[in-house]
């Protein structure tokens, strides 16, 4: 089986290059969400470049759309489009903009404004139930995003309609652009909030693909209600000087920072590869 932690480090390297070259991006959230997306795209979801029109494919919405660089690198790596296309990222006229754009193969819905993914996912899950299709619907939200009221409108409807084909993930890195999520608008009782809205809640270490895999499988087995996985992550995960620093929400590394980040990511990847080979 593929070592997904190693794959996530490969994707982080691609993301670092993309952001450094394009001089734009939200690197902190890209790195915190990376293991979640890798787990979904390489192990959990029934999706692929040959299935983009398949009515039975699983559906995914990146509700925290600003982490699109990780999604782009994963879609390219999975062959949804040629990797060279990413050279246009953030350049004039490119379709590879700073938020998901469904003109790109493999992206279902546009996002970027927060609080949209879950309600749209509710509609997709409802359609699946209406048509008796077995596909599952996934969305990933940021923790800062949960201050949007529309998230809770969606949460209400998901349990009302018993959407057990819907799994939401909260990338709980505890930082947003202004600082700590708990200072900006606290969520420390997040599990209780979702439970009160009628959801099954699973806690998982969010930078551990094997633990996330177990959580996704448990969600798929849970009947009669939707599941939220509160994935406890580290913002900037993988690069020492970026980890747990709000400033790296959307800072672009300079040359020196880029070189150091590259070295660190390569070392961690090599280390994990070494472990895997033993």
């Amino acid at each position: 089986m593929m070592n997904l932690t190693e794959k996530a480090y490969q994707i982080r390297q691609d993301v670092l290059d993309l952001i450094y070259r394009g001089k734009a991006g939200h690197i902190g959230g890209d790195f915190s969400v990376c293991d979640i997306l890798v787990t979904l795209y390489y192990r959990i979801m029934n999706v692929g470049p040959d299935k983009t029109e398949d009515p039975d494919r699983d559906r995914f919405i990146l509700s925290k759309g600003h982490s699109v660089e990780s999604l782009y690198c994963i879609l390219a790596d999975r062959g949804f489009f040629p990797k060279e296309e990413l050279l246009g990222y953030s350049q004039f006229g490119s379709k590879f903009i700073g938020h998901p754009n469904n003109k790109i193969n493999g992206i279902e819905m546009n996002s970027g404004s927060l609080g949209h993914g879950l309600p749209v996912a509710v509609g997709m899950a409802l359609a699946g139930k209406m048509d008796g299709r077995a596909y599952r619907v996934y969305t990933v939200m940021g923790d800062g995003e949960l201050a949007e009221g529309s998230v809770w409108e969606g949460a209400m409807a998901a349990s009302h309609y018993h959407l057990d084909n819907l799994t939401a993930v909260v990338d709980r890195n505890r930082l947003q652009i202004s600082g700590s999520t708990e200072d900006v608008m606290h969520h420390d009782d997040l599990a209780a909030r979702f439970e009160a809205f009628g959801w099954n809640v699973i806690h998982a270490p969010g930078n551990d693909p094997d633990a996330l895999t177990a959580a996704f499988l448990e969600a798929a087995e849970t009947k009669g209600l939707p599941t939220v996985i509160i994935a406890n992550t580290v913002k900037g995960c993988g690069v020492s000087f970026m980890e747990d620093k709000a400033v790296w929400h959307h800072k672009v590394p300079n040359e020196q920072e880029y070189e150091q980040a590259r070295r660190e990511l390569e070392e961690r990847r090599a280390f994990i590869h070494g472990i895997d080979c033993e």
Partner: peptide, 27 residues
């Protein structure tokens, strides 16, 4: 079976419709 009630939640109303449409429905 072809009716969806969202309660008094007009943001959700439109987003759910968009999700349905993205899966081939005509909301």
């Amino acid at each position: 079976e072809q009716s969806v009630e969202t309660g008094i939640a007009e943001q959700n109303l439109v987003s759910i419709a968009a999700g349905l449409a993205a899966c081939g429905k005509k909301p």
